[in-house]
Design a protein around this nucleic acid. Sequence first.
DNA 1: TTGCGTGCAAAGGTTTTGCATGGCA
DNA 2: TGCCATGCAAAACCTTTGCACGCAA
Lengths: 139, 139
Amino acid sequence: MAETNQGYKTRQRDLILEVLKKQGNRHLTAQEVTDLLHKKGTAVGKSTVYRYLEKLAQDGIVKKYTVDGEKSICYQFLQSHETCINHYHLKCEKCGKLIHMECETVDRLAEHIFEHHNFHLNTAKCVFYGVCENCKKGE
Amino acid sequence: MAETNQGYKTRQRDLILEVLKKQGNRHLTAQEVTDLLHKKGTAVGKSTVYRYLEKLAQDGIVKKYTVDGEKSICYQFLQSHETCINHYHLKCEKCGKLIHMECETVDRLAEHIFEHHNFHLNTAKCVFYGVCENCKKGE
DNA sequence: TTGCGTGCAAAGGTTTTGCATGGCA
DNA sequence: TGCCATGCAAAACCTTTGCACGCAA
């Protein structure tokens, strides 16, 4: 939902997106985004940062989640956001990596949950936590 | 570590533990523990609640973690072994309700993800987002 | 009695909100 | 021009900390 509701294009929004994209696979807190912009000499008000990050999360352009141990909310840019509608995410609690998973078996999950639990799943926002292959090896 | 370091036995500590145990498979925030005690007419200072929950977490008696969408830290009493192993959460994006779901079909998910995606799921932390029955009706 | 536990209030952080102003379309 | 976006400050929260007093052992 809300894919087309882009709102206005402003200097601040461009700057925020740029910072998020530059961080690639890493997640950032609102504070970190604010600080990075400040250091670059292109400061943006923190309420703007919070509000825009929230909007991007609603639109499925960034992922918003909490990480155990971090006291703040984390945001992460989704590389190919158009494909994030119908797949799921695996978040490694060790290295912070976000894995995009497409899988038929898991696809049936939404259907099942709707039919048997009367719950309308928003698959784009579902995050499974655990430990990825690499981190498991290193334990 | 620190399993035997029980400290003093006090009225407040008994009350806090009692509330946690009574909630069984559910997780509680420090605020909820405080409120429940207040409603029961046996109020305990919130710093005491925070401090004791932290101690219980250190001692491995409760589990401390964050849940996406919940702004507060969650605590959950650990039964002997089976706690949140086969227990998933449905979080309604409309009303914020957290539904605790036990379901065989979903149980197989962890197994599937491990076998086919080499990812070790931490089921206790998995949260499915969507819209619950009641909110869907009201739309 | 000794030292840990408790409760209040204040501090420290993060996130949200109100409101006047600014700027895109 | 009509809205939406921005930024500041204040508010609202959650959690931690300092300190005097209370209480278990």
